[in-house]
Design a protein around this nucleic acid. Structure first.
Lengths: 338, 338
DNA sequence: TTGTAAGCGTTATCAA
DNA sequence: TTGATAACGCTTACAA
């Protein structure tokens, strides 16, 4: 590949390879004159040191491994975006592991990260099996997990205040006069998005001393739009129709909106809709979707920052967890109700 | 990092490191018994060879560098998705370079790819300066470029039939009876999306012997929704309003739709809208957007396949270019007109 | 079939 | 301040 190596540079500059290495790394003192001489050769030959050889001995590769289930999901791509914005300026590049949600692939990448002597790992949307746990216990790699937390693993996390977020959305609806609120939950195997967001809804309803009928909470089959569509159907076919629907994710909310649209309900007059995530589409829809804004770019940014802390930490320094507070993006899908 | 190395395995198995290496690589014949013995130690110790050391000598890293301007842009994230779906099963992992459109960052990653002895490069949405050209001429790395083409570079490309696509969309409008069509072009510095798509529009109009007034073609300031909004405003303020708007990208089309919606025009009754790309939102909008479907996942898939060909090619084998034909996604934003 | 030993291109250690 | 030289962990001739 590269014709030139450090040996050639040393020869051309009339010094030893050790000196060239010192110039390259800025380590230790080098006589300005020799330094100049070497630099000239380096520039003239366009020499660049082999990163593999470098990493082999120095044990540092300046690469961070990122593992996510799906890059074409906006939530993760924005996360990676935020990650990159803090890691790149600090000299780290990204090694991307896309798992498609398969545990087997997850474990494969975890091993690959070690094989390649990557400096640190960022995880988001990955499972937490016995095998994972085993890996986490054995490895010495710095790890940050985002959008979830691995209980008792000691792995620092960056997560969203999901409970507070849905509490916020529910309270907003309640303040607007809605009492009959239908909740479309995300699948409950997802603790953060499924369980926690439902919890925030229940909490707010309880605070207003409003009962939650069994039928008014529908658990969507998946995170897809179509599941929101189906769930909204169930909700609107109840004898007591809700005046507002709160969906655990924007995608699900959009499915619900489409059901309403397709069946002649006007939004928000006949039924208000509120979502969670604030994906890009939400502001583009007409009516635009009122939703809980989660800054996934920021989440990536913070995750990257935490990893940098782990990478540069002092022996006794502790890197804590981070919880990001969502906010409300008020748009046009919710109206007043008496 | 890894406590164990090949030496330890060799010692524990009572063989030489060369034998362990042979077992590891399946190269050359190894006595089944010794092989068994070694395998047992490998499994018992959970030994995994150091990829850096391996790459250093073998000159292969099983890593492909991917360079794109923005991962949070759906078009690129789907592209990466397609790429991964063909590269991962073939044993390659992705090294991701996000450039944010900065030439400086592009060049940095190009060098990084070489430093890290990456096996091949996939480029999409990158510029083509003198420096780039220089790099491409010097490097021996297999490269595939997608969504664009580097003239006279000899670099195989995978691209979309942009001219045919917009010709198709225009013809569709014409067949629906539209004669006064407003075209919102993407910025013209982008050859593929700006120039080529405009060309297809003009071609179709010419075939129908319809004149194109100067005002009926508006070049958007950017690829953003807001630019589509502004452009639609210009179009609808003309003395002769168009009965249909063709926007060079869905994002721009959505901006146009929002302008129409906000100003009391109903779609498609008052004005039809057609887009290009078929991003996810388009099917979610109400009315859903009729648009030219471009399969970016497929584009990534094909790019990956072409790179694999380059990586495994015979000395005299030629890897050609690929042009992907888009199709029409007919939805509800276009109506008949007399 | 197996082992010895020479690299791969760096950094790090120790003298000089 | 500089230069030999020994690692780093592996693959691969070449010998045995």
């Amino acid at each position: 590949m590269q014709e030139f190596n450090i040996k050639d540079v040393a020869r051309l500059a009339g010094v030893s390879i050790a000196t060239v290495s010192r110039v390259l790394n800025g380590t230790k003192r080098v006589n300005p004159e020799t330094r100049e001489k070497v630099m000239k050769v380096i520039e003239a030959t366009d020499f660049r040191p082999n990163a593999l050889a470098r990493g082999l001995i120095s044990k540092r590769t300046n690469v961070v491994g990122v593992m996510i289930p799906d890059i074409s999901n906006e939530i993760f791509s924005r996360f990676v975006n935020g990650l990159e914005s803090v890691l790149e300026p600090n000299g780290y590049s990204l090694f991307l592991g896309i798992t498609n949600g398969k545990e087997e692939t997850e474990l494969k990448y975890l091993q690959l990260f070690e094989d390649k002597q990557i400096d640190g790992i960022i995880l988001s949307g990955v499972s937490y099996s016995k095998n994972h746990k085993h890996f986490f216990q054995k490895t010495r790699m710095p790890i940050i997990v985002s959008g979830q937390q691995f209980r008792d693993s000691g792995i620092p996390f960056v997560n969203i205040e999901n409970v507070a977020g849905s509490h916020m959305a529910t309270t907003y609806l309640l303040n607007k006069g809605h009492k009959k609120i239908g909740y479309i939950s995300a699948p409950l195997f997802d603790i953060a998005v499924g369980v926690n967001r439902l919890e925030g809804f229940k909490k707010a309803m309880k605070e207003w001393q409003l009962p939650i009928s069994r039928q008014s909470v529908v658990v969507a089959d998946s995170f897809k739009t179509s599941s929101g569509y189906d769930a909204a159907k169930k909700l609107m076919e109840l004898s007591v129709k809700p005046t507002a629907i709160f969906a655990a994710t924007d995608r699900i909310a959009i499915g619900a909106m489409n059901y309403l649209y397709d069946n002649g309900y006007s939004i928000p007059e006949d039924c208000s809709v509120i979502g969670f995530d604030d994906i890009e589409v939400s502001s583009l829809l007409r009516p635009s979707l009122t939703t809980v804004n989660v800054d996934y770019v920021e989440s990536g940014f913070q995750s990257g920052k935490q990893l940098l802390k782990l990478l540069n930490r002092q022996p006794d320094e502790v890197v804590g967890d981070i919880l990001l507070m969502p906010s409300l993006s008020i748009r046009n899908s919710v109206s007043e109700r008496n």
